[in-house]
Design a protein around this nucleic acid. Structure first.
Lengths: 341, 341
DNA sequence: ACAAATTTTTTACGCGCGAAAACTTTTTTC
DNA sequence: GAAAAAAGTTTTCGCGCGTAAAAAATTTGT
């Protein structure tokens, strides 16, 4: 297979003028069928792909789409990033994946390096509380950005996420219906704004059902949620069992830590007679079904969030980078009953 | 802050000629200290960054380094990718992260799209058994590539990984020393060549210690190792306890599934008197300390593998893309004793 | 078959930068 | 302080492609 250096050479070999070939690569449907066929025949015969750097230098907006998640080593984000990637590719764009490593400085660095990639748009799951909102807002003014997972009020062209009230109301309702009203287990200073919404939803649901809410806040900083949850649970449970035999964790990673602590302390968790504690949670982390016992939790609608995020960003891009108004889309949770509650 | 369009304009504003400014951006140390100071002063006053596409068009090799792992949603790979990313940035390169989604076609697509990024080099953890070795070899002929985690005989400029014999010999030795000789638990058709090396190491160690090796192969395809391990363990344990009360899993993800199955069946796992089974494994997966019970396992030297991989790739790049000979570096494992064995 | 509409070709320019050559200025060396 | 070395400047070219305008060729409609 002969290698071709540039479009000029390829055009000559395919018997088509270079500007027409250029048109073809920008949109194959923009040339006549017979011309398209001749180009594609040559494409099969010779190995040629337009130089991506030369292309992007002359286009105002590239075909890149940035994907930024707060922490790539968190399987939850890895999974959603994976789905987003595939949707982006399917839409004919090139995904650029970045993780913020749980650090707001890194988050800004990522956006900065993203800026120089001149992406057509960016899908951003911000760190949340610790994010530098001013700088992110500045970024969003220059680059069409759709936020997902974690909302930063007013920033970005749209927000796609999960409905925290739907999560918590379902888990609370289920726990109450099948046993004691739960206490709510969370970090004192949660990194993510969803945590606050979940706490409020818990309180609201408990009051609506006529029970006194009981929020247990544990110490800990950073993104090692399992370890933080484990330490918090060891502390909580070492003073005897809590006020209720049901614990609702703010998220699955905390719950994984809690289950680990319970196991270590010999506390049986589950919904059967012989169990002392029930533990439920929110997110449906990829590992939730392999915890011991398997974790009852409210599942994100991964696919819908990913689909809608990409679809919305494409809308934004096609309408020139701005939307008439900032929309916020929330998808409901699906309760997944397993053995822990 | 005034925005500058190009280097010409920035050079004029900083009072330095464009070629010198260009030199500065390629290597700040290549210009005189006083000149550097003037440029950097202007850099603080005006907002300018060279256009990355124009740069890359004119350089034979870009400052991009591709990082490809078989599965990004696997925390093990996410963690190592994260570490690699940071090393690459520290070396002044720009990381491009990709996951193969456990699919060999995707793996080739990723390499293909990587090729058009004209990266200075690539760090590739191949899928393994299912990889299209011929195509990967072809890629390696064009792009300086260092393999890590999983070796593909003779392909790439070097291989950096973990010493599977070190892993298994330590876990086997420990299990034998503290109880019954273990059986080896693995997939019938492992996706990864490391699995084969581990099996052989197990057999060799058992024979050396004077015990009969006992390999238990379970069915299952794909990358859902936890689920496969769980199903395999349920099957194995439903026929009563196995030949030995010690199970050594090929990797942690299988072990997570095994522990989940044990819990479900009410089989107590651990090294204490009251336990029926001991389970150990290899990898030290990020979640291994949160399983129930926490998992005794042999830990990868993440940091060393990442450091050496990047260092080796930089050597390759600096020596013009080829190394005198293909080196294979293996790092030993560190036994991590927890509660499962 | 002929005019109109569509598509392609020709020609030419520009994007922002790397790089090389020849020349000028500044710094180093003894 | 003069010669040598180092660093900076000027000038010029080219990378591979997008894009625009005018001319030429092809297809379409009637």
């Amino acid at each position: 297979m002969v290698k071709i250096r540039n479009m000029e050479e390829f055009a000559a070999l395919s018997g088509i003028s270079r500007p027409t070939v250029s048109k073809y690569f920008n949109n194959p449907d923009s040339v006549r069928a017979t011309t398209r066929a001749r180009i594609e025949e040559a494409l099969g015969k010779y190995e040629y792909r337009p130089n991506i750097y030369a292309i992007n230098q002359n286009r105002k907006l590239t075909k890149n789409i940035g994907i930024v998640v707060p922490f790539l080593a968190d399987p939850f984000f890895a999974e959603i990033a994976r789905t987003l990637e595939q949707n982006v590719i399917a839409a004919g764009y090139r995904p650029n994946l970045f993780g913020s490593h749980g650090n707001s400085d890194v988050e800004l660095e990522v956006l900065d390096s993203l800026r120089s990639l001149k992406p057509a748009g960016v899908l951003l799951a911000p760190l949340g509380r610790s994010s530098d909102k001013l700088e992110i807002e500045k970024f969003c003014r220059d680059v069409p950005t759709v936020l997902f997972d974690s909302n930063l009020g007013g920033i970005g062209e749209a927000f796609i996420g999960s409905d925290n009230f739907s999560f918590v109301s379902q888990t609370v309702e289920y726990l109450v219906r099948t046993g004691e009203p739960p206490i709510f287990f969370e970090m004192r200073t949660p990194a993510n704004p969803n945590a606050n919404k979940r706490r409020l939803a818990y309180i609201q649901m408990m009051e609506r059902l006529g029970f006194e809410p009981h929020v247990h806040k544990i110490e800990g900083e950073g993104w090692s949620f399992e370890e933080i949850g484990r330490a918090g649970a060891l502390k909580l449970l070492s003073d005897g069992l809590p006020a209720s035999n049901a614990i609702l964790c703010s998220n699955d990673r905390l719950a994984i830590g809690v289950l680990s602590a319970c196991y270590e302390m010999g506390i049986r968790v589950g919904r059967t007679e012989d169990c002392q504690l029930r533990v439920a949670s929110n997110d449906d982390h990829p590992f939730a079904r392999f915890t011991c016992p398997s974790l009852t939790t409210a599942a994100h609608d991964y696919a819908s969030v990913a689909d809608r995020s990409v679809a919305t960003l494409l809308e934004v891009i096609e309408s020139g980078g701005k939307l008439a108004s900032r929309s916020e889309t929330l998808f409901p949770a699906r309760l997944v009953l397993r053995d822990s509650a």
